[in-house]
């Protein structure tokens, strides 16, 4: 009789592919994922300033944030399939090429370094059809190539930019303050308090409250999850100061965002009740 089953050859090839994907998630990467996940969870709803958005929006200038300065007029062009856009010689001081891609048809669009974006039919013509991406300038780079299936249409706007991370500032007490960036965190980290006032929290206090300090001591996923469980539903408040680090302007509340979830959705491997 013909039992409906997966074809063996197909199944075996798929099986090997799946197993190799799982094994590629090395322990180091898995650890990082736990940390990132906890970070996202505990900070849900709070605003530690990364810099770019706040600065660009002109809210207030945060030392240590990234400043992107356009150096050339954008070259904007509409294409079909794979195409290359010439940008001319990069101006002095260029650190990268900033691209904005709008898909005009569904499809997969690949940026020069292999990163790609997939557009669905429902994305076209909506804000979802946009992707932004910046690649670092490498010697001799004067053009960008976007790979797409034949017939897939897209519009790209590309320009040379200089992006640099500004320095943290130092207050009268000798403490550095500003936004978290690739160098780490200054003594006082920029946040927005619950009352909407921008200010700074003492980084070590923030790390205690968010558990960043505790997370660094975890050796196993189980430890992390047990810790997470113990904190579930609790909130921690940290005072927000102005840049002097002395005057309190508000509070910064760190809550375990998943406080009400008890059905196991928050934790990937937690059993449902």
């Amino acid at each position: 009789m013909n039992e409906l089953r997966v074809d063996d050859r197909f199944s075996r090839a798929l099986e090997e592919e799946l197993v190799s994907r799982v094994q590629k998630a090395s322990p180091a990467r898995a650890r990082k994922r736990i940390r990132m996940w906890l970070g996202a969870g505990v900070l849900a709803g709070a605003g530690v300033l990364g810099g770019v958005g706040a600065t660009a929006a002109g809210l207030f200038v945060t030392p240590g944030s990234q400043q992107v300065t356009p150096l050339s007029t954008p070259v904007t062009d509409t294409h079909e399939g794979t195409a290359t856009i010439e940008l001319g010689d990069p101006p002095e001081g260029t650190t990268g090429i900033e691209m904005e891609l709008n898909c005009l048809t569904p499809g997969r669009f690949e940026f020069p370094d292999g990163a790609s974006t997939v557009c669905r039919a429902t994305d076209v013509g909506t804000p979802q059809d946009w992707s932004g991406y910046t690649i670092p300038l490498t010697p001799g780079l004067k053009s960008v190539t976007v790979k797409a299936d034949p017939g897939a249409r897209w519009r790209l706007s590309a320009k040379y930019v200089n992006s640099k991370t500004t320095d943290w500032a130092v207050n009268a007490g000798g403490k550095s303050y500003g936004a978290e960036n690739e160098k780490g965190a200054p003594d006082l980290t920029a946040v927005i308090a619950t009352n909407g006032i921008p200010g700074y929290v003492v980084t070590s206090e923030l790390e205690d409250a968010t558990g960043t300090a505790a997370i660094k001591t975890f050796k196993t996923r189980e430890e992390a999850l047990a810790w997470q469980e113990a904190r579930r539903g609790k909130t921690f408040s940290v005072p927000v100061y102005d840049s002097t680090g002395k005057t309190v302007v508000g509070d910064f509340v760190v809550s375990n965002g998943e406080g009400e979830t008890t059905d196991g959705t928050a934790l990937p491997s937690e059993p449902a009740p």
């Binding site: 089953r5 798929l14 799946l18 197993v19 094994q23 491997s269």
Partner: peptide
């Protein structure tokens, strides 16, 4: 499943074999 997300490919293989025909 909890072993799979820790990067244990064999655990994921077992899950795959367990359910592939039903999913198919």
């Amino acid at each position: 499943w909890s072993r799979s997300i820790k990067g244990d490919g064999e655990a994921f293989r077992a899950l795959y074999i367990r359910y592939r025909d039903r999913i198919f």
